[in-house]
Write a protein that binds this DNA or RNA. Structure first.
Lengths: 146, 146
DNA sequence: GTGCGTGCAAATCTTTTGCAGGACA
DNA sequence: TGTCCTGCAAAAGATTTGCACGCAC
């Protein structure tokens, strides 16, 4: 289950439904972000955007990322170093694997995490309302390359 | 299993073994950080430190936090909002619960996460070398208060 | 006495905000 | 045509760095 399967058009529809006017800049940024397999920081998105459209402003990228995050289309990733990268959101509870070699993300089946949360609730007595799990290592492809 | 059970003297010993000179400032910062139950940002540590010793420099706190993190005594917490807070490190795999009401952290038994990781390795084929799990909700004490 | 730790200030880096002009509905 | 979007520049905030001085060893 990979990030690049996200449909950019759904994001544009969601933006329209939330009263946003769709501009060329927005379309470009949505395409960059909806299709990435690698967590991207606002700064990285800006760099990518400027290769397509050099006059793109930095603030525009920050504002777009913020809006997509508030619409729950984009999710902040708390990476191995640094916490300012983003990936498309997938259903909760999300189990995210990030390859430390190629940087690609893979969304794993969340059922084991779901079970773990219920088990932990019972054993600890805490009421758990949200979770964040990230796994790091070497992905299948990168294991074969080495 | 709570953070305040961490022994500050072990941290001071570790610092000495890594060639650090122990000063009053260092002792104060170690005591603040080793005993906290609530994730603290460098800025918060600085505020606390200045209440004890007003002339404490901000840069000193940042350098101390960085050193403790590099010695794996302190661990960066990717909180509900913001990712610049720190807690004492506990053995891996660490399952961390943070109460959204009182802010306190509780370290849970890591075995379920250990099992989850092995299961995910088998089903996905990825080689998992590190993990980060944080659970959020209402702790036992805060449930009773409400 | 030597060199690391410290405080201060400046520099750097990231992110946010204000504003004037232009584009979308 | 009104409002939202955009780019620029400035501001704000967080973190790092340079340097002179003092303290631990």
């Amino acid at each position: 289950m990979l990030a690049h399967t996200i449909d950019a058009n759904k994001w544009l529809t969601a933006l329209r439904e939330n009263g946003c006017r769709i501009t060329d800049v927005q379309e470009m940024l949505v395409h960059i972000l909806a299709h990435t397999e690698i967590p991207l920081s606002a700064e990285q998105v800006w760099e990518t955007a400027r290769q397509i459209r050099p006059e793109t402003g930095r603030a525009t990228v920050y504002r777009m990322v913020e809006k997509l995050e508030s619409l729950n289309l984009l999710r902040r990733i708390h990476g191995y170093q640094g916490c300012c990268s983003f990936l498309p959101t997938l259903p909760e509870p999300m189990m995210l694997f990030i390859c430390l070699v190629c940087g690609r993300a893979d969304y794993l089946d969340g059922q084991p995490l779901h079970d773990l949360i219920h088990q932990s609730e019972r054993s600890s007595g805490h009421h758990i309302t949200d979770s964040r799990l990230q796994l790091f290592g070497t992905c299948v492809a990168c294991q074969q390359h080495s």
